[in-house]
């Protein structure tokens, strides 16, 4: 570079001292987590709960179903960290094992409802004849409050974890279908879809390549909310005796068993309640964070 000739008498502006420190672009996973603290907190809590569920046998637990009638309703202490219930079972072990049921139900329902709702929503948004029928059915299903729908379905079958997952999934499908269909209806008017049609792309290919990827962002956010709702619904079903069978320790079951004694031994209800609330809170925080990260405009829609 050649030297710049400076006319005589012209003062050269001195470079300004930096008032603000240079903005460092935040990159990588850590930067992302710092930009969206709710994802970090929610994800961290959920990960911790997942570890508790997976490693429950190694976390100084006893057999959650072993009875010790002589040691019933002991206050929390050195022997029973969270106390013992009216059959002498260790509440600490039961609560830790209970995380398995809650997380299994939450994740399974979120996954199944998303996949089924996505499929129905895609076809319903694309095929006009199917749309009017499918949406009438979905409107009908949505007019039954979800918990009542799950209760009614559970009344038909035996209580088991699979049936609980199935019942809650059916109750959640209409909301996913509606969301996906709405996205599909707005996307199919987009010029790039017209272009794909004009260039001879088949309907299935358009759905797969051009529509589906655009539904994934709102669907992921919706799936986290469904996960949270499913965990609460499972606890409610078990609590009123229409959910997971009493042999399996789930947070709803533990609370249902502690219900009769809650005025004198509140800790039996308290510990599963705290774990359930923290887990649902974690999933909701994760969902809020994902919503903000993926598409800030969604903040108002969902």
């Amino acid at each position: 570079m050649s030297a710049v000739i400076i006319p005589a008498g012209l003062a050269i502006a001195q470079p300004m001292p930096d008032v603000l420190p240079p903005v460092k672009p935040r990159r990588g996973v850590l930067g992302f987590l710092r930009r969206y603290p709710t994802i970090a907190i929610g994800g961290g809590l959920l990960l911790a709960m997942l570890c508790i569920a997976v490693f429950a046998p190694f976390l100084w637990t006893k057999d959650p179903t072993s009875l010790a009638p002589a040691l019933r309703t002991r206050e929390p202490g050195a022997q029973f960290w969270f106390g013992s219930d009216m059959l002498g079972r260790d509440v600490y072990s039961r609560v830790l094992y209970g995380a398995r049921v809650s997380l299994l139900v939450g994740f399974s329902v979120a996954f199944l409802a998303s996949v089924i709702g996505l499929t129905i929503g895609l076809f319903s948004g694309f095929i006009r004849l199917a749309d009017s029928i499918v949406m009438r059915v979905m409107d009908g299903m949505m007019s039954i409050p979800p918990i009542l729908l799950a209760i009614a379905l559970m009344a038909l079958t035996r209580g088991s974890v699979q049936n609980v997952i199935l019942a809650i999934t059916i109750a959640e499908i209409p909301r996913v279908t509606r969301l996906v269909r709405g996205v599909v209806l707005s996307l199919r008017e987009q010029p790039y879809v017209d272009a794909a049609v004009a260039s001879g792309t088949g309907t299935v290919m358009i759905m797969w390549r051009h529509i589906l990827p655009n539904t994934l962002a709102p669907l992921t956010v919706q799936a986290t909310y469904i996960c949270a709702a499913a965990m609460i619904t499972e606890a409610i079903l078990s609590f009123i005796g229409a959910g997971t069978p009493p042999i399996i320790p789930s947070w709803g079951n533990i609370m249902a068993e502690g219900r009769a004694l809650w005025q004198v031994k509140p800790y039996i209800v308290f510990f599963p309640a705290v774990f359930l609330s923290i887990t649902v809170l974690a999933v909701n925080l994760l969902g809020d964070g994902l919503r903000d990260a993926i598409d800030p405009r969604l903040a108002k829609k969902l």
């Binding site: 949270a228 609460i232 606890a235 409610i236 609590f239 609370m255 809650w262 005025q263 509140p266 209800v269 308290f270 309640a273 359930l276 609330s277 649902v280 809170l281 909701n284 925080l285 809020d288």
Partner: peptide
Amino acid sequence: AVLGFSVPVFVVGYLLAYVFAL
């Protein structure tokens, strides 16, 4: 609002009953 969505109704119920009634 986030707390309201996360803490299930029976948890709030027992907590309120314990504090304000018992």
